Simulated scan of single mutants.
Amino acid sequence: MTCSNCAPIEETRTIFSTGRLAAAITMAKEAIRDGILQDVPGGPMSSVIPLSDLNPDGPWDDLLRYRFRCTTCAQVFLLSAETYHGSGGEWAKEPG
């Protein structure tokens, strides 16, 4: 359940192009900068490159997986993408 802090962030976004992936990376970085989300490092299959070092325009690792937590309600969001084969990815609320 989102709160008024994280409600403006899209709950689900299918990533089917490099442009959509770049937009999702930018959205996550801006939300962290604005204090809406905080990066949740580590976890299963997390990306090697920290989000702070990730360029929205690439190059990217073959698999991207980042988790974020709302600084107010602790809702967790997940950004994941498979870039090697171009099968896409998703920005979504993590069930929980």
Rank of each mutant, 00 (worst) to 15 (best):
D39P: 04
Q75R: 06
D53Q: 15
P8A: 07
T12S: 11
V40R: 08
L37E: 04
G88M: 06
S87C: 09
G19C: 09
Q38D: 14
L54T: 15
A22Y: 00
S4E: 06
T71K: 07
R65D: 13
L79N: 14
V48D: 15
P95T: 12
Q75P: 02
C73R: 03
C73D: 06
H85P: 00
T71R: 13
G43E: 12
E10D: 05
E11F: 02
G43N: 10
P56F: 09
A22K: 05
G35A: 05
A23K: 07
G43A: 11
F16R: 12
G89I: 04
E94Y: 11
E82C: 04
S87Y: 07
W91Y: 14
E90L: 08
F77I: 07
G58S: 11
T72Y: 00
P44R: 05
L51Q: 08
G42Y: 08
E94V: 14
E10W: 03
T14Y: 06
L64S: 04
T26Q: 13
P8I: 00
G19A: 12
D61I: 00
S4T: 03
A31K: 05
E94P: 01
S47R: 02
A23S: 10
C70H: 01
R67Q: 14
P8G: 06
V76I: 15
M27K: 05
T26F: 08
S52G: 04
D62V: 09
D61A: 13
T72W: 00
E82L: 07
A24T: 03
T12H: 08
S52Y: 05
P41G: 10
C3K: 04
S87E: 15
C6K: 02
Q38V: 14
A24S: 15
L79T: 13
Y66K: 08
P41T: 11
G58K: 08
P56S: 09
G88Y: 13
I36D: 00
